[in-house]
Simulated assay, not measured.
Amino acid sequence: MTDIAWTDGVWTHAPVSAVEDGTDLLVTAAEGSDAWRLTSYGFIHDNEHALVAPCEPESAVEVEFTAAFSQQFDQAGIFVRVSAEHWVKAGVEFADGRLQLGAVVTDGRSDWSLAPVPGWLGQRIRIRVSRSGDALTIRAAVEDGELQLVRVVPFAPGLEASAGPFVCAPTRAGLTVRFHSWRGTAPDAQLH
Rank of each mutant, 00 (worst) to 15 (best):
53 A>T: 05
5 A>L: 11
191 L>C: 12
172 R>M: 08
98 R>W: 13
118 P>D: 01
65 F>K: 02
4 I>R: 14
47 N>T: 07
15 P>W: 08
130 S>H: 03
108 G>M: 10
57 P>F: 07
54 P>S: 03
181 S>F: 08
118 P>L: 02
14 A>F: 14
48 E>M: 05
103 A>Q: 09
59 S>I: 01
124 R>C: 06
135 A>F: 11
115 A>F: 07
54 P>L: 00
59 S>H: 04
57 P>N: 04
48 E>N: 06
157 P>N: 07
28 T>H: 02
126 R>D: 01
68 A>C: 13
67 A>K: 00
123 Q>E: 09
46 D>K: 08
162 S>H: 10
182 W>A: 03
8 D>C: 06
48 E>P: 03
123 Q>G: 11
19 V>I: 11
135 A>K: 14
32 G>M: 04
174 G>L: 10
124 R>P: 02
107 D>I: 06
7 T>E: 12
189 A>H: 15
136 L>F: 05
122 G>R: 04
86 H>T: 13
53 A>K: 00
186 A>G: 14
15 P>I: 05
87 W>D: 00
128 R>F: 01
53 A>G: 07
32 G>D: 03
21 D>V: 09
61 V>S: 01
109 R>I: 14
72 Q>D: 08
15 P>C: 08
96 D>V: 15
52 V>C: 10
87 W>G: 01
158 G>I: 01
103 A>E: 08
40 S>L: 10
149 L>D: 05
29 A>P: 02
52 V>H: 02
128 R>Y: 03
121 L>F: 04
27 V>N: 00
29 A>G: 04
185 T>A: 15
23 T>E: 10
77 G>Y: 01
108 G>K: 10
127 I>T: 07
66 T>G: 02
163 A>Y: 08
161 A>I: 05
28 T>L: 04
52 V>M: 00
145 G>V: 14
180 H>N: 15
62 E>W: 00
91 G>R: 01
172 R>N: 15
130 S>P: 07
143 E>L: 09
86 H>A: 07
178 R>L: 14
3 D>V: 14
145 G>C: 14
170 P>W: 04
